[in-house]
Design a protein around this nucleic acid. Structure first.
Lengths: 338, 338
DNA sequence: GCGTGGACTGTAAACGTTTCCAGTTTCCCG
DNA sequence: CGGGAAACTGGAAACGTTTACAGTCCACGC
């Protein structure tokens, strides 16, 4: 029952009603003892008035908002759903709410999220930027509250960090394709000026080298990390290299687009062209044929990042920045069945 | 550059540095005028100190947090990504941040989100509950801040509400199947005790009746609104009704599961069995064959809900609750090509 | 019966803003 | 150059909590 007198019940309303001081009300409500009958009176008044503490006031005084945020590029990318699920679980466990920012790969948006740490709305941030510019680094360095980065940072950058060597992952993909006898292995990458775009490109080259295959520029196409872009890129590549027999896609979205394009172009997967994606999202299990994909432990990365953040917000306030990493793992499915 | 003296810069730090009162600082910072040189001094001091206003203090004073929330069942369900995108766009436009709750269909979680309105962390809430219990209604009725419900409410319930007649949508799906000559049309539904489960079941029956087909209990299977559950249900149904030639699935996730199960059971889609999903999510475009699906305007519903909420938080504080609705639309794709 | 310690209580300050109010300066015009 | 209005300024209160501090009460042991 909300109180009829003006706004919602405050600690003072309760105090008057219970005939005690506001200090006592605060103490009882926070379980800090009190005489049995005081406790009883206060609790009675509180429930009667339907009291809910004003989080703003509490935060202002205590300096804690109980909120942490996760800034991702786009909720549409299924790689984030696993991450978000685990982050949320850890956050909830530790008594934090999770705020999600979908930055839309907009650099400004990302920086804004970073700066908004300073306004005390969020106590900490997990961010997974795909581009890391000098501005990002500056902003990260001067961030007012703890930040954990999912993704790679420059060597020696002093910030909690969860990474995965997607270069190795990309090499695994290529090796896998070579291992089933494919010799003309194409690569549909995202933009080369992104961190994952770079790493995966290097990994692709590593993989070719390891398999003793020549690298040929014409085998590589660039686009965005999206389905439609993947389909377009696949068509361009196919036109240029008609006898392609293997295809590595820099993420599952691109791969899904490629699968469709290949089908429309009349190529059979995996018989004509074997395909490997990356991220091992839920998508990989719903396509047809199901998609072989290199998992980058997104759930695990989310979990680790959240744990690092929660730790730093609690005990580990002053500990050294910690870098943890996760190893990629290839999950073979129908799209590379030999 | 953050000030070296103790915590982050406050309005008072600036005041001292600029040699003016905190009141003047506040006014300048909020663009409420001031003498040119005052403005200059304050702004200089502010940027020099890297000042960021403390949102908590501001909220406490002004009673506004600038945050609204959207509570959905599960971020994993792609139907929400379109919704979230639009909600976020509208929210941002109006100067609100969007907080996302993924309640996991946990009734307690949902109610918690509702109650947390009261703690002033969020100024308003958009909620899309799939089960609406008496508890929900009670909680909705007594919510301290504006709530907009995406989904159906009992007749005459006084709350802003965005709905779609998914009963009609389901009937459209069945008619479509009947229209391409299918006479044994199965139905994979979600739980019958959910709002969408109910509506879609009724619609399925409507559709059968309209097409002059008999309803047979054995044609209907129940499960969860998930891929794996959809696959299982499809197998059960197939075993019971081997000569099935049409299948309506209560959402795209179920349909995706069904497509896989059908393929594994050696049925060709659409030749042997034509399949229709519901929600018209991005998934419908990535499966093979691509999935015919009844769109329920999720992007539009998100947008409308956000607009209703924003309006109520601004101008429309006291206006009558408004019910708006969106009409379903069937998008035909390969899974029902005749 | 009295002192002592401990448990409890209330007063008041503090968190960082915004905003009301009254006082001051500035400016314009006659 | 004086008067008045308009623009600006600073002091102080308020938002709803938590918490340090000092005061009050009680029970207990001597």
């Amino acid at each position: 029952m909300a109180s009829a007198d003006g706004g919602p019940a405050t600690i003072e309303t309760i105090a008057r009603r219970a005939g005690v001081s506001i200090a006592s009300v605060s103490r009882v409500l926070n379980g800090l003892g009190g005489r049995p009958d005081t406790v009883r009176k206060v609790q009675a008044a509180a429930t009667e008035l339907g009291y809910v503490p004003n989080a703003m006031a509490r935060s202002l005084r205590g300096g804690r908002s109980g909120q942490i945020a996760f800034a991702m590029e786009d909720i549409g990318n299924p790689v984030y759903v696993a991450m978000v699920r685990r982050i949320q679980a850890v956050a909830k466990e530790a008594g934090f709410r999770l705020l999600l920012h979908s930055t839309g790969a907009d650099r400004e948006e990302e920086l804004r999220a970073l700066r908004s740490l300073a306004d005390r709305h969020t106590e900490g941030l997990i961010i997974s930027p795909i581009r890391i510019t000098r501005d990002h680094l500056d902003e990260l360095r001067r961030a007012v509250a703890p930040v954990v980065v999912i993704g790679s940072l420059p060597e020696g950058f002093a910030l909690d960090n969860v990474r995965v060597d997607s270069r190795v992952g990309a090499a695994m993909a290529v090796s896998h394709l070579a291992g089933i006898g494919r010799g003309r292995i194409g690569f549909l990458n995202g933009p080369l000026d992104t961190v994952p775009g770079q790493a995966r490109y290097r990994g692709y080259l590593d993989g070719l080298a390891a398999a003793g295959l020549d690298e040929r520029d014409e085998l590589v196409e660039f686009g965005e990390f999206r389905t439609d872009s993947g389909a377009d890129a696949a068509l361009r590549l196919l036109e240029r290299v008609p006898d392609l027999d293997g295809l590595f896609c820099a993420n599952d979205l691109i791969a899904v687009g490629a699968l469709r394009a290949l089908r429309e172009a009349g190529r059979r997967v995996p018989d004509d062209i074997a395909v490997v994606g990356m991220d091992d999202t839920e998508l990989a299990r719903v396509t047809w044929p199901t998609l072989t994909s290199v998992g980058l432990g997104s759930a695990r990365r989310g979990e680790l990042a959240a744990e690092l953040l929660v730790d730093r917000l609690g005990e580990g306030r002053d500990r050294e920045p910690r870098w943890v990493s996760v190893t990629p793992e290839l999950v073979a499915r129908e799209s590379t069945r030999s």
